[in-house]
């Protein structure tokens, strides 16, 4: 029986997956995931695609906010930047394996600009700066008609690889989860590098970190850039998935959605991003099922879906902040511990 993880060497401490059992489970999980389009129903598959996109974006916000402690309210708008980059390049015939990184890079550049105030201010001031950036970006989305198509929106050409066209959920699934897996592993790896540790040091006490030789300025901008890169890729995937997009999609509620996903999932862990994104995607769906079921008794209830979803996001943020600040990933860890130690109790 395993009672805990005890590291005896630095090598084992730095290992990416702590124990062999985790690797086995990951392998099984990957197999299930990548055969999913073969056995799952249409509804589940479409949901899985959306979850995948949200996972990529949440991973990014979790690096900026969870690892580096820089709160960003412009994450939703960053997705828009990625999406419009892909749309613009796609119309010029650039293939997806170039547009997606380009979307990430352009968004990362923008993230650096938005992060610039973080050199002088932090915490709450920074939140306000990112909020301002969000409104400026959405203004640009509505007004820069030649690139974004303005309020009516724009279309995104399908991703193609040779003769293979990523059309439909089944094919897009592989595009989305291919990116999601690569980026999740990258995020996990980032935490083990100097940069990742510098993020955590800056989050916990930035002055101490500076005394220890961490370049605050560079680290904070890196945190913003990496988070924005993920958002840009997620935005690009979103564009390929939907095929058409309007500025309506990138409202402040989207930023709040990702913030909620990060908090609900667990700040600063990859597992937390995945759990949080999945949970937050299924909450509105569950709400929808509930509303459809109760529509028989309360006729007008269907129109309340959107505002109710918003209220539930807010409620989840507060409940998790007050009751379980480490989120679902902490609950998961506790459950695992109980199973491992059974029949003994902790």
């Amino acid at each position: 029986m395993r009672t805990g993880i005890f590291h005896e060497t630095f090598k084992s401490d730095e290992r990416m997956w702590a124990v062999p059992a985790v690797r086995l489970w990951l392998l099984i999980g990957a197999l299930v995931l990548f055969t999913m389009p073969l056995w799952s129903g249409d509804y589940l598959l479409a949901m899985a695609c959306i979850v995948g996109i949200h996972i990529v974006a949440t991973l990014g916000l979790n690096i900026t906010t969870g690892n580096a402690g820089l709160i960003s309210l412009s994450h939703g708008a960053f997705l828009g930047v990625g999406c419009y980059t892909v749309a613009w390049l796609g119309h010029r015939g650039v293939p997806f394996y170039l547009t997606l990184p380009a979307a990430g890079l352009s968004t990362a550049c923008l993230g650096v600009i938005v992060g610039l105030p973080s050199l002088r201010v932090k915490g709450v001031y920074l939140a306000i700066a990112t909020l301002a950036a969000h409104f400026i970006l959405t203004f640009v989305f509505r007004e820069w008609v030649s690139v974004t198509g303005g309020v009516p929106g724009t279309t995104i050409p399908r991703a193609t690889l040779g003769d293979f066209v990523f059309v439909g959920d089944r094919r897009n699934f592989y595009l989305i989860y291919g990116c999601a897996v690569i980026l999740a592993i990258a995020a996990r790896n980032l935490a083990r590098t100097y940069i990742g540790r510098a993020f955590v040091a800056v989050r916990d006490r930035d002055i101490s970190a500076e005394i220890l030789g961490v370049d605050l300025l560079r680290t904070k901008l890196q945190a913003f850039a990496v988070g924005a890169f993920y958002a840009g890729v997620a935005g690009g995937l979103l564009g390929y998935f939907y095929g058409a997009i309007t500025p309506e999609y990138f409202v402040l509620t989207l930023s709040v959605f990702y913030l909620a996903a990060v908090i609900v999932g667990g700040l600063g862990t990859v597992l937390g991003s995945i759990l949080g994104a999945a949970f937050m995607t299924f909450v509105p769906e569950a709400l929808r099922l509930l509303v459809n079921a109760s529509a028989h008794w309360f006729p007008g209830v269907a129109g309340l879906l959107l505002p109710m979803g918003q209220a539930v996001f807010g409620l989840l943020i507060i409940v998790f902040l007050v009751c379980e600040p480490h989120g679902l990933s902490a609950i998961w860890a506790r459950v695992r511990r109980v199973i491992h130690l059974w029949p003994f109790r902790t």
């Binding site: 109710m308 979803g309 996001f313 807010g314 409620l315 943020i317 507060i318």
Partner: peptide
């Protein structure tokens, strides 16, 4: 979160 609840 509070803002989101009130708005919704």
């Amino acid at each position: 979160g509070m803002a989101s609840i009130i708005h919704g």
